[in-house]
Amino acid sequence: MEKVFIEMINEHRGIIYKVCNLYCLEKEYKKDLFQEIVLQLWKAFPSFRNESQRSTWMYRVALNTAITIFRKESKAPERRSISDAEFEIPDMDSFEDQHEQMGLLKQAINTLTQIEKAIILLYLEEKSYEEISEIIGITKTNVGVKINRIKIKLEKVIKSDRYELR
């Protein structure tokens, strides 16, 4: 079971990277959150019965962990942070050189609330409204309304950032 789980983590590591980058700004907290998400996925793994897609299930666990039960202020003396040599989470910053829009996107997303970040992440991942509704736990109509509001908010931020850049 452990081997299957590790393969699954590597196959979908992008999901966890994205959640960590969206919800934590500092490197050490990102690593802590990454570890916590992997641990929660491992705990939930035996009860995963393929009722939904693996990626949908992983988004649910990762977002629940990041938003609801990960406490950034908690001191975990027994947890030794993983060293950079062992493992590093690729930051959005490292791709800014390739895409200037990435910087704008990152700045805009950082202005959103925790819930809005979760919804926009799933939208950008091209999840259907039905899948987003299943992961978040709200109606499809509510998903549509929220996405429209978030789009307006992001576009306002992007336009004002662009204006400042000129």
């Binding site: 789980f5 916590e36 992997v38 641990l39 947890r79």
Partner: peptide, 22 residues
């Protein structure tokens, strides 16, 4: 992100043996 290397199996195995800070 997809083009980044796989995470070492031992590192993941180490993570699942840690205590939760949730």
């Amino acid at each position: 992100l997809k083009s980044t290397g796989d995470i070492d199996d031992q590192v993941i195995a180490g993570m699942i043996r840690k205590r939760s800070i949730s």
